[in-house]
Computed example of a mutant assay.
Amino acid sequence: MKTAAALVVGVASAFQMPTTPGRPATVMHETKADLVALCEKNPTALPFEGIWDPLGCADYNFWGLGNEATIGYLRHAEIKHGRVAMAGFLGFCAQSTPLVAGEHIIQPYRGYVPGVTPQEQWDNIPLIGKLQILVFVGMLESYGEGAGSPAGYVHYTKGGKPGYYPPIAGQAFGQIPFDLFDPFGILPEQSAAEKERGLFAEINNGRLAMIGLFSVLAESAVPGSNPQYKIFAVTIPPYDGNIMGSTLPLDDPFLVKLFAVLAVCGFFQQITNGAVPKLPK
């Protein structure tokens, strides 16, 4: 169970990307000044002014893409990891209940063991099951990065909206019936102001969820490390395994080959999206 936290958020200004033959120029809208403006619209409870950026990430230039593209990348990373953390925290809570962790008439997977912690539930999933989950998540991630050229998609390092995930219903030869957001189409149309408030709420909830998820993992590994649970008489099930570890040793021949394949796929995906500068002719 892995979750990483990005450190900064921001929006808007202008940067003209070089024109590529056959493709229109892209206008960037991400600057450090806009990060400050965004923070003023979305104040936090922390007692400091401006953006919280202890590592100076808002001034970096990742992969030679430019500072504006870097800020777009960091904004997208925070929103994405916030979403993952919200799902992870709620999943941890659900998997700690007898309804999920208890006995089942039909076993959820081969080798299921009732009455164990959420981390142990993951440990008990067969390797082939874990690979299916990772491949599925990788397919969603690849599509969200523009694989398949979704209609209207603009990458977040090229002026696209951070946090945007293109509609996926009807993809994979029609096998995916729903979109990830509002899958049943029951939410009313929102105004621009309502969308902005919703984005701020998602960012803030994601930040809190990242803290919450790490707190339950820390408490399960080191009981008493988060005294707030004792204050509210909440018991986090202990776990003595390696939370950040792997079922197989990292030097396992299977994992070595898998990492190599994933690295090559990720590299070519980044080239396709323009995140890796191409060598001059």
Rank of each mutant, 00 (worst) to 15 (best):
Q16F: 05
Q16R: 13
M17L: 11
P21D: 12
G22E: 12
G22N: 05
R23K: 14
R23Y: 04
P24N: 14
P24I: 10
V27M: 12
M28T: 05
M28H: 10
M28C: 05
E30C: 10
A33W: 05
D34M: 11
L35E: 09
A37W: 02
L38D: 04
C39E: 12
C39T: 09
P43Y: 08
T44V: 08
T44N: 10
A45T: 11
A45E: 12
P47F: 04
F48K: 04
I51N: 11
I51R: 10
I51G: 10
I51L: 10
W52N: 07
D53L: 07
G56W: 00
G56L: 04
N61M: 02
N61T: 12
N61C: 01
G64I: 03
L65W: 00
G66H: 05
N67H: 06
N67L: 02
E68P: 04
E68G: 15
A69C: 06
G72S: 12
Y73V: 07
L74G: 08
L74V: 04
E78F: 12
I79V: 14
I79D: 10
I79A: 13
I79Y: 14
H81R: 11
H81T: 14
G82V: 03
G82Q: 09
R83W: 10
A85E: 07
A87I: 13
L90W: 05
L90M: 10
L90H: 09
F92R: 06
C93H: 10
Q95E: 08
Q95P: 00
S96M: 01
T97C: 01
T97A: 09
P98K: 00
P98A: 07
L99G: 03
G102Y: 01
G102F: 02
G102C: 05
G102E: 02
H104R: 12
I105C: 02
I105M: 13
I105T: 09
R110G: 08
